[in-house]
Design a protein around this nucleic acid. Structure first.
Lengths: 352, 352
DNA sequence: TTGTATGCGTTATCAC
DNA sequence: GTGATAACGCATACAA
């Protein structure tokens, strides 16, 4: 056995103390140290030896390398989170809930931002799988999502947050968007509006679809169906697109609608901008509503009526659900529905 | 040499194809595959063999495992980002800039949220170091930061974003907060206000300190020094604390100040709330200003005067700077200053 | 140009 | 109860 140390380290070795150092200092073998420092005692160690090892490890400032351990255990104790756009204020509270829970469980959170690009979502998942992440939380889920399918193929646990797949192929934490929007539609009607416009989003997202079906269904059921030229769609749910959609709506008819129900808050805020640009006073001349109740929404001008949910709680639930899947690989897809709560504010005003 | 395959895999092997699989399929040795697939050709390989290996790798859907590679190369191609509170709207645009640049460079971004807790910041850095992250971007930097010191001790490259250390011990991308606040102070004076109150933040953050010194200095220089009872400090820069601080300010004197200059936008929004609670009309009776120009600030009621900077650009610059440090470990601390831009809006009104 | 041997830090499975 | 050994997937100094 040649013992030449030819394969020298690339860098001047970082001073990180490893198991071998602890073992040497404690006068035991590395495997014994590993047994002691690993909480799940696979093999028992005599109390005095264990105590000595623990003391030495502490003195030397040893901390385990989860990556190296992961090579062997196939668990790196890290999870990915993929979102369309971290700049959308709906995500930070969710991310915060995820990060806190995962941190408590000793897992790190890796962030992926994919800008509404399905190809980027797939590439991001592959990246995360290649890095041996234990699981992924998807904030990008589409109703029929190749990302979910590929994750299944890879055996990578996935939890969907906010949205879900039609087939329920993966666990999801979401709110009942259709119910939320039905409530909002009813509120708009109760405020006396009849000429109502809608701004929807791509229907391959369950949120966008459920909200659209919820609102169209509710309005039709109350004898107030929405004509096609009072419906616009945005390609992305942001302020700029909301503004463009509203401009398009206003251009189609001589008279503006009495109220606009937008698919989410950012789109609604863009719609408000477009109304102002067109010289329309919101809410005196036109009411606008959103969805998600992003932070600080009550402080906008006008305070925006929206549908709220506990975003941080949703993030925490998604994290817990993923942890449950990690603990029990046999666990089937779970669906957790969080109740939506109507938040009526000044942007929804009485007609007249 | 015992060749028994006793150490069986823990899980039913994930179907991930590895270098050995490609090597077997291509009829070459693994090291040859490694040489071909690694862009930086250390040893040359004959073109035909290289082409065959590449084809096989593609057919088999091979993708490298950066973690396993990192065990050897000491580079996991992942970086950490530590922030006080991802729910603060100032961070998402920065994070977006970082994520995009890092993604382009093939690095993943790990997020750490520490809630203004210095101990948590230190623990997070240790976590990231233990996971062999290539570097860390700090959004939490304190003027004399043990996190920066420990990172130096570990040889872990660090770039500070938004804030910086007094000693300039690590690279930083920030704006000139003192200059930004001087401009704001002057604008407030030019609007006729003389009874001006300040809401500051913990002075161990360079942003809070520079802004405070900038505004107090400018006001004093213009013959309008701020008395102690017109100054309040928040423990954290969020809406709730801003509101409490404003309440405290209002309680100290019979008459409210004419203007309030807050350390950042969230604090300013909290101050606006407190003013309203107290029956003060903002901006008719009291002007309020912020800092950072977080997204959508112009749509608030009132539109908040603030000091703007290119947050996404700052994130991208920080990412580039960290990448530069990774490419050249000998690179010393760099300081990049981004210009602040005054954004005057209706929350700052003429006196009277 | 290509194959061989070894190590990165850890853990699982043996033998003792 | 503890030590010895191989393996996780990859990269590289060296020999051939």
């Amino acid at each position: 056995m040649p013992d030449d140390k030819t394969a020298a380290p690339i860098r001047p070795r970082s001073a990180r103390v490893k198991i071998a150092d602890v073992a040497a200092a404690a006068g035991v073998h590395a495997s014994t140290v590993s047994r002691v420092l690993r909480a799940d005692r696979t093999g028992r160690v005599s109390p005095d030896v264990a105590a000595r090892i623990r003391a030495v490890a502490h003195d030397l400032g040893y901390s385990a390398n989860p990556l190296a351990a992961g090579m062997r255990t196939r668990s790196t104790r890290s999870v990915g989170v993929i979102v369309h756009d971290i700049s959308d204020p709906v995500y930070p509270p969710i991310l915060r809930g995820i990060e806190r829970r995962m941190g408590q469980a000793g897992h790190m959170v890796v962030l992926g931002n994919t800008g509404y690009d399905p190809a980027a979502e797939l590439a991001m998942l592959d990246q995360m799988a290649a890095r041996m992440m234990d699981g992924v939380i998807l904030g990008t889920t589409r109703r029929d999502d190749p990302v979910v399918a590929r994750a299944r193929g890879l055996g990578l646990p996935v939890v969907s947050v906010l949205r879900r797949t039609d087939a329920g192929l993966c666990s999801a934490v979401a709110n009942d968007c259709a119910a939320g929007m039905r409530a909002m539609a009813q509120a708009v009607l109760e405020h006396g509006h009849r000429d109502i416009a809608l701004i929807g989003a791509p229907q391959d997202l369950s949120t966008a679809r459920d909200r659209h079906e919820g609102v169209t269904g509710a309005l039709a059921a109350h004898g107030c169906p929405v004509p096609d030229d009072r419906i616009a769609f945005v390609p992305r749910m942001d302020v700029v697109q909301g503004r463009l959609a509203m401009q398009a709506l206003l251009a189609r008819r001589a008279h503006p609608p009495e109220a606009v129900i937008a698919v989410n808050d950012l789109v609604a805020l863009g719609a408000v901008q477009a109304c102002r640009d067109a010289g329309l006073d919101c809410p005196r001349e036109i009411s606008v509503t959103g969805y998600n109740d992003i932070p600080l929404l009550a402080m906008f001008d006008p305070p925006l009526a929206s549908v709220a949910m506990d975003l941080t709680g949703i993030g925490a639930q998604a994290a817990d659900l993923l942890l449950a899947h990690l603990a029990d690989p046999a666990l089937g897809p779970q669906l957790q529905i969080v109740p939506p709560v109507l938040r009526l504010r000044a942007s929804l005003a009485r007609r007249g």
